[in-house]
Design a binder for these strands. Structure first.
Lengths: 358, 358
DNA sequence: TTGAAAGCGGTACCAC
DNA sequence: GTGGTACCGCTTTCAA
């Protein structure tokens, strides 16, 4: 039995280093921060003893002095409340330890893709230090992100990405994995094989295309006679989704499984009901919102792939804050492992969600 | 589109309150912290204006002054490395923002349940302020926890609980849900029904019994002719597990599903192999360790219920730290939502695990 | 019961 | 190039 216990006690500070070398703390500070006006030789010695003594800066003290409150603007839609509020909670939670050196400013647009540019410009104009945004319309936002990059304002995308822009990083449930998990679940749910359909928004969106790739790969990998017989673009629109779902159901009277890879699953569920095929089709959806809860509970939806907004929020804030503080560059894509939510863990998930609010 | 932006700028501090009332900051401090020796009337006025001005304490300053480095002892087994190291990582990660006001001391015993008491006593003797422990043998540990409680040293149990003791809280994947998720998965994987077996350690352990309860409830809820035909106690022992698994396989030539609710799944997998029944039985396991990885990849294990050690570690540390700082009592049981890990999300999970280490 | 003042570890800005 | 020192917001101690 080994007991690993750190060296006695008191953490070594800047003045320990100063004392050890017989220099002043001002010099030590200059050396540690690569500031100009110091003999390169002195710097070396300071850095060496700092390392030798195992110096670790006291973050509390640093924040205290740096009177500069860091302001981060968080721009997210109002709808769908449960999802975006969870994301906001995650951000808030991660920011709590840094209060009030770090200030959050929440800006909201009504729905994903609406009024994003205005919010972005407003944030830039108000002089924030960093931005967290869910780009519903990446193309429209591209000039904004470029502008931010020119002003050295780091931008982190959450949930959806704006690929090919100068954003610092993106945080999301890896879309390939999301599709892949859904595909594997459906394959396992259909051990006798059968036809399945894939619903998405726009295949032009990188995110959605990736989900399809993952789904396909996974269905074929298991390979027990499960076939993707329909790939449907519903354009995130209720009516389109409903109409096209009806058409698919008619065209494939023997359909055994459905994966809806966007949040737009309700119209598909309604179509299945309307055709009286509930219970004959294994359905996997994406995300979690109030209207979905009873359908999971009743078993109409076998599983939903939850993209874990709270966790995404936490990661986004941490990455952004680290960057603003240290200049530490996060990985370009921060991937969150999606949750498989079914009847059996639904309550625990909802409970945790509500418990986190205080 | 609404833009919610907080009031102009500078956070209000303790001396703003003092100035507003014409008292000293000492008085304000006494009021805010319910300290003795202050006129109840003065206290009221201070609290009121504090609320009115929207005072939020500056955590950085607070940590800075409280010269008292909080020492937390973390007592976990060495084996199985991947799992416990993940837990340690989660704890470290959560502690990082509070460096070096918060000091972690890691103590390790070789295996769960071995040498726990010694480590615990050692930690108590060294005068730590709080303890995080995974009690392998809760009964043996009970007097230790009592002793800690008498000394006002809060103890948080992770992964497993020590029910009925004075521990401050426990953090774990809710065992009922773990069982329940496994049951639902197996039921879904077997739409034509069939016999399934449940493997555990000791049914006397509350944790294990809960898993069985969840499993049963869930299998019966779906109710498509899936029956639990065997409940096996393997006593966390490889040989026992192997022998009993062979016996179950012989007794039920038509077995269609297995859930191993402890980490002791390898012997069961070997027994299935030995009998040449791989591929004929849907297998769900618990946790994730190197030897399990290829078996998931090959499809021998359909899914494993991952108890998310990193997250458990984070929650444990946060709860303990909050309590030591504020006296904020966490919920008695902190429940983590378990992950369903399958071939399709295995890589993402492993990748994230290794990415978190730096 | 209250006020005043000395730090905590770093940073920033003086003067040498 | 370097040393000294006044802070940052809060806690704590000692004096009144």
């Amino acid at each position: 039995m080994r007991a690993r216990v750190p060296p006695p006690a008191r953490p070594v500070g800047i003045k320990d280093i100063a004392r050890a070398l017989g220099v002043s703390i001002g010099t030590v500070d200059r050396a540690l921060h690569n500031k100009p006006g110091i003999n390169p030789d002195t710097r070396r010695r300071v850095l060496d003893t700092a390392a030798a003594l195992g110096y670790r800066p006291n973050l509390a003290a640093r924040h205290l002095k740096s009177r500069t409150t860091i302001r981060i603007s968080v721009q997210l839609p109002q709808e769908i409340a449960l999802f975006w509020d969870s994301l906001r909670d995650g951000i808030r939670e991660a920011a709590a330890p840094f209060e009030p050196t770090l200030q959050l400013e929440f800006r909201s647009n009504p729905r994903l893709g609406e009024g994003e540019v205005e919010l972005f410009e407003q944030a830039l104009a108000s002089g924030v230090n960093g931005i967290i945004v869910a780009p519903g319309d990446p193309v429209a936002l591209e000039p904004c992100i470029r502008q931010a990059a020119r002003n050295n304002i780091p931008v982190i995308c959450v949930v959806t990405d704006a690929p090919g822009t100068e954003r610092l990083a993106s945080v999301s449930a890896d879309p390939f994995t999301v599709g892949s998990v859904a595909g594997e679940l459906l394959s396992r749910f259909l051990p006798n094989g059968g036809d399945v359909a894939f619903f998405t928004g726009w295949l032009g969106t990188e995110d959605h295309a990736e989900k399809l790739r993952g789904f396909d790969a996974s269905v074929n990998a298991v390979g027990r006679g499960v076939h993707v017989v329909a790939v449907v673009e519903a354009h995130d629109d209720e009516r389109t989704g409903y109409r096209r779902a009806l058409a698919v159901l008619d065209a494939h009277p023997d359909l055994k499984g459905i994966f809806v890879s966007t949040v737009n699953s309700l119209p598909v569920l309604r179509a299945v009901e309307r055709k009286g095929r509930t219970g004959q089709i294994a359905i996997v959806t994406t995300d979690l919102f109030p209207a979905l809860v009873p359908r999971i509970r009743q078993g109409q939806v076998a599983a939903t792939i939850y993209q874990r907004p709270v966790t995404q929020g936490r990661h986004a804030l941490q990455a952004l804050y680290q960057f603003l503080l240290d200049g530490t560059k996060p990985p370009t894509r921060i991937k969150v492992v999606p949750h498989v939510v079914m009847r059996s863990n639904l309550d625990l998930l909802l409970e945790r969600r509500s418990g986190e609010t205080p």
